[in-house]
Design a binder for these strands. Sequence first.
DNA 1: ATCATTACTGAACGATGTTCAATATATTTA
DNA 2: TAAATATATTGAACATCGTTCAGTAATGAT
Lengths: 204, 204
Amino acid sequence: MARRSEHSKEQIREMALAAAEDIVEADGLAGLSARKIAKQIGYTVGTLYLVFRNLDDLVLHVNARTLDALFAKIQDSLHKCRTPRTCVLAMGRAYVDFATENPKRWNMVFEHQLAEGEEVPYWFADKVNMMFQLVQLQLTPLLESQTEKKIDLVSKTIWCGVHGICSLAVTGKLDISDAESIHVLTDSLINNYLAGMATTLKGE
Amino acid sequence: MARRSEHSKEQIREMALAAAEDIVEADGLAGLSARKIAKQIGYTVGTLYLVFRNLDDLVLHVNARTLDALFAKIQDSLHKCRTPRTCVLAMGRAYVDFATENPKRWNMVFEHQLAEGEEVPYWFADKVNMMFQLVQLQLTPLLESQTEKKIDLVSKTIWCGVHGICSLAVTGKLDISDAESIHVLTDSLINNYLAGMATTLKGE
DNA sequence: ATCATTACTGAACGATGTTCAATATATTTA
DNA sequence: TAAATATATTGAACATCGTTCAGTAATGAT
């Protein structure tokens, strides 16, 4: 055997990640296996380990791609909004839309956990933080008089809230599942939280 | 072998669930295995399958116990509060406290997913719904003029938000991890959301 | 044409969830 | 008390999993 250089290592990586995405979106993280990926790209298991440290590493990279796609979709949603409030609303809806369109892939980002000793690599943590920073960017016009710590708190609170709604809805723990009904919850969260913040800021 | 009737089936169930809890809180869901549980209770793997349909079923029951303990803790927190707002604040803090005290067990409730065909049993869904109803119970005094649908929306939004904060904090996706810092977020969410709701209700 | 390098394989290992014929004990019957 | 029946428990077997790595086949260099 050995079809030397039919694909570069980088190509094999890409193929493996794409195959893994397919399998996960079809059967979830539980349905993913090294042998399935290998079979789908026409190589054997061993080859995967020349290109990834192990399956956890591969999943981490699939998750990175998911976060990238999610981030892109959320950034896109900002083209059609004008005020901080409507922009955060748009972001929340885009988040929900992505999650309902790619439920298993999105879910894997939060389902997957590294083994005890392993650390989440910095480049992965960065991708998560970028999401919060994008919220922060929208909100700063409303919070110019506030400390950075306060702005950080507000962005995190809102975005965690949106995530919580999305998470419980997509995993079927609420009775709702269609995107439209979930938007009602995220809209409510963002509108009321911001309205409440406005009153407490005035009262100072 | 066969130490007939040394323990009743119900006792073996209890022992297995307790052992599983121990293992999960030590090593997480990934560290749990049928053989480990069996070894810890002094039986062999086969015995577990006389008492549970399969490992998924066992995990589901561990999760049920976790939800029961969580619910009890949250109910307890209601003895020291007087207003709807402070009661929901107390509930949020109790939720965070439980999650930080039992991170792996709590996490498993949301990490674990049944296989494609399997349905979440009604008694499990009930336990989740009871949590929302407890929030609803606190909030109805503030929302007496509102439709039931609106009350439901508000409770779900707030509690999902609290869950989202808790979830991202406990799994290390925020930079914070101590309970006190997480309380700041849940307090902020609840206080601002309710304040915002008060203004929109007045404006009607 | 030979050698060295490289790309890839696939058998092997230990561990997993799950099943079920076999077995050892307890209870009932004679 | 002894034999027969019933039942509680076992543990070997199966397929599948992640992971490793000696071996092999094809390429590039000499």
